[in-house]
Design a protein around this nucleic acid. Structure first.
Length: 736
DNA sequence: CGTAAATGTTTTTTT
DNA sequence: AACATTTACG
């Protein structure tokens, strides 16, 4: 209908556009300009508001397509937005900036990065690359990577960057010993990144803010170019993103943000819920529109979601309603362990599918990716087609990362992390020792790794075998680079890389199923490159094909590969589920310690877990089932589970079995608040407490310094001062 | 330098 | 339990 209208500028077509909206939606869509906050409850049509607003801005000639910047968090959301706007406008939207924060920033930086001392061909490091670099820095500083784990340090650095704190800023704020270490690593890490002409994910945001703050003329240029900025999922913005929007939105503050404080679930990534809570303080003139009518779920599901999230404090307050009716009650099931849970869920799925429901209408959500495994086993055994979203992503597979590392080195010869990765993959006799000699030679002489490796004979300490291996390797690489600079199609280049480097041969020689799978993945990557080449003609950016390809895939996530219409059951984490809807939803692993996750209990981020639960529940349109297991294998050991507190926050009259469900099902449905999942062992429970004096048959006298789940006690022995962990039920210890 | 065994680590959630 | 990293040895 609307999609067939070529030019909606005519007023009757605008009327038609607006008629599809309810009054508050229409109010938001037609707000003429200035700051606008749309508080959009789950399923209340927020994407609809965004897309219609874009169409309305263009239709009423308040903005030209090129003057619109519409930001989302995921590529999937961006793509969906583009498709829907295209349908509304009936014309192509290529000149509009409809993209994620990270892609928009990468695009700006490809033009502006030289101002910060990077070239346009800078490499984007993902979290794994970044972590590897952090580890290198730790090694370089002679720090123990067990005491200071790269993951923890990297997280700290990432957090600092999201708060726009440079290494120097961070050092000023150091409070304890750990932070001093982080400050040292951060400084070195930044130096290395810059030397390698590389940026991590956080840099993409941070560096754009830097450029805009340092160069007023650049800021003015972009702020003028983007006359209207629209932001989706505003509750998930962090400080860097907040600042970025501030810089870009210019004097008119034509900033429309859409979000739901109850769906803020990215605090661990420094998302700052205050950005949405304080929007009115930041922009006193802001118009605020609330969307509370839900078009997705039954009233039962909405009531459950409302009830759960009402346990949170500090909300803007909002209550979803619908006029579609009560619907079916929510099902809550207790199972023995994760296998029984999987069998139950899959059994129910089979039953529902037999009734004629399409598999594409069913989704299973869980807290952690690791929970998908058992479910997958069961689905495979019952021969039910499924897809898993997220988890080990295509672009995180080692063979894919190897292939991309080859391309990165060809595009950016300073990229040490990638060079390190490929130098001996496949094995070609360039071991750890030789490689670090080359790297340190490059460092001391002040040349790139590429140059150092190409002149292997000049590297001190290298054996003749190593020199010959390096010469051969670099001959191959040079030949490949010759083709790269001639801009041969990326697909051809990649294929040449994988053949001439000996990578394919290497995999073939393994003769294993896994190697075969890896080969297939690589061919898939070549296919991706060929598609990229085919689309190259329609791209107007001035980038070289190889650079453009690398830039594009660096920001692609697996979640973008979701397919809806193929008769597949969908499995994903609750985080990945945001923004989606399914008629039939299962949420598994609703146990204390799993969901809410034990770490969020420790860190006091329970409210965020509760919001995650709210997100999960509100994905369901017709039927919702929540399950938990009394026992679950964690790290290979068995752990006892108690029903999640969130289950007890759902009013019993919404649950199958009626208001007396809790009584009928026994205590298992009622979570004991503040109880913990405990590790179960065969060992009898011990009555040892912290501080008890004990005697051990072999180690002698000691004192209990800690009690851990699973009947494990930590004892410090007087004899040698050692601290040992013992199984209280088994170890020959007695209390004195 | 490469392989195999031993040891250690991981499981929050993601652009 | 599965995977990565480190160590020991040929």
């Amino acid at each position: 209908m609307l999609g067939s209208v070529p030019h909606p500028a005519a007023s009757d077509q605008l009327d038609e556009l607006l008629q599809a909206l309810n009054p508050p939606q229409r109010e938001a869509v037609t707000w003429p300009g200035g700051p606008l906050l749309v508080l959009a409850g789950a399923g209340s049509g927020k994407t609809r508001v965004l897309t219609h607003r874009i169409a309305w801005l263009i239709g009423t000639e308040r903005a030209r397509p090129g003057e619109i910047l519409s930001i989302t968090f995921t590529n999937r959301a961006a793509q969906e937005m583009r498709e829907r706007v295209e349908l509304l406008l009936g014309r192509d939207t290529r000149s509009m900036w409809l993209m994620t924060f990270h892609s928009a920033c990468a695009r700006i930086l490809r033009a502006e990065a030289p101002r910060l001392g990077y070239t346009r061909t800078f490499t984007i490091y993902d979290q794994a690359d970044s972590r590897r670099l952090v580890k290198r820095c730790l090694d370089e500083l002679g720090l123990d990577t067990k005491r200071y784990t790269p993951a923890a340090i990297q997280h700290q650095i990432s957090a600092a960057k999201n708060w726009l704190r440079s290494a120097e800023d961070y050092r000023q704020l150091v409070g304890d010993h750990f932070e001093t270490i982080v400050a040292d690593v951060y400084q070195l890490y930044e130096r290395d990144l810059h030397r390698m002409n590389a940026m991590d994910f956080d840099d993409l945001l941070l560096r754009v803010v830097n450029v805009l703050e340092l160069f007023p003329e650049v800021k003015a240029r972009y702020a003028t170019a983007f006359r209207h900025i629209l932001v989706d999922e505003y509750q998930d913005t962090n400080h860097a993103q907040y600042r970025l929007l501030q810089l870009l939105s210019g004097d008119e503050d034509n900033l429309s943000v859409v979000g739901d404080d109850d769906q803020s679930i990215y605090g661990f990534r420094q998302a700052d819920i205050r950005n949405i809570l304080d929007f009115q303080d930041d922009f006193p003139a802001a118009k605020i529109v609330r969307l509370e009518q839900n078009y997705r779920s039954t009233q039962t599901i909405l009531s459950a979601a409302n009830a759960v999230v009402s346990h949170n404090r500090g909300r803007m307050g909002k209550s979803l309603w619908t006029d579609v009716g009560e619907g079916d009650p929510i099902v809550i099931r207790e199972l023995d362990d994760e296998h029984a849970e999987a069998r139950y869920v899959v059994g129910e799925i089979e039953r529902i599918v037999d009734e004629g429901v399409s598999r594409a209408e069913i989704a299973v959500f869980y807290r952690m990716n690791s929970q998908s495994r058992v479910l997958e086993d069961t689905l495979v055994r019952r021969e039910i087609a499924y897809q898993v979203i997220g988890g080990t992503k295509f672009y995180e597979r080692s063979e894919i990362k190897d292939a991309i590392a080859y391309l990165s080195v060809l595009a950016n010869e300073q990229d040490v992390i990638s060079f390190q990765r490929i130098a001996n993959a496949p094995r070609r006799g360039i071991g750890q020792t030789s490689l670090s000699r080359v790297l340190s030679h490059a460092e001391t002489v002040g040349i790139t790794v590429w140059e150092a490796a190409a002149g292997a004979a000049l590297v001190p300490g290298l054996g003749t075998a190593a020199v010959r291996a390096l010469d051969r390797f670099m001959a191959t690489m040079s030949s490949l680079r010759d083709r790269a600079v001639q801009d041969v199609p990326v697909g051809d280049l990649l294929e040449a890389v994988l053949h001439e480097s000996g990578y394919f041969e290497w995999l073939e020689a393994e003769r294993t199923i896994e190697a075969q799978g890896r080969t297939e993945n690589l061919h898939e990557l070549i296919e991706v490159a060929r598609e990229f080449d085919a689309a190259a003609a329609s791209r107007d950016d001035a980038m070289r094909p190889l650079e453009a390809f690398l830039a594009q895939i660096a920001l692609v996530a697996d979640a973008d590969s979701r397919r809806d219409d193929e008769g597949l059951i969908t499995l994903m984490t609750l985080h990945n589920a945001k923004g989606l809807e399914y008629p039939i939803v299962f949420i598994i692993g609703c146990e204390e310690g799993v969901f809410p996750h034990s770490r969020s209990i420790d860190e006091g981020s329970l409210e965020e877990e509760r919001r995650l639960c709210y997100v999960g529940i509100t994905r369901a349109m017709r039927n919702l089932t929540m399950t938990y297991a009394r026992r679950r294998a964690v790290f290979g050991a068995h752990a006892m589970g108690l029903a999640s507190r969130f289950l007890s926050e759902i009013p019993p009259d919404l649950v199958e079995g009626g208001s007396n469900a809790a009584a009928a099902a026994g205590p298992q449905i009622r979570a004991r608040p503040h109880s913990w999942a405990q590790t179960q062992t065969e060992a009898p429970p011990s009555d040892l407490r912290m501080g008890d004096d004990v005697v051990h048959a072999a180690f002698g006298e000691g004192v209990v310094t800690g009690v851990e789940p699973g009947g494990i006690v930590v004892v410090r022995f007087a004899g040698d001062g050692s601290e040992r962990k013992l199984m209280a039920g088994y170890a020959p210890i007695t209390k004195r």
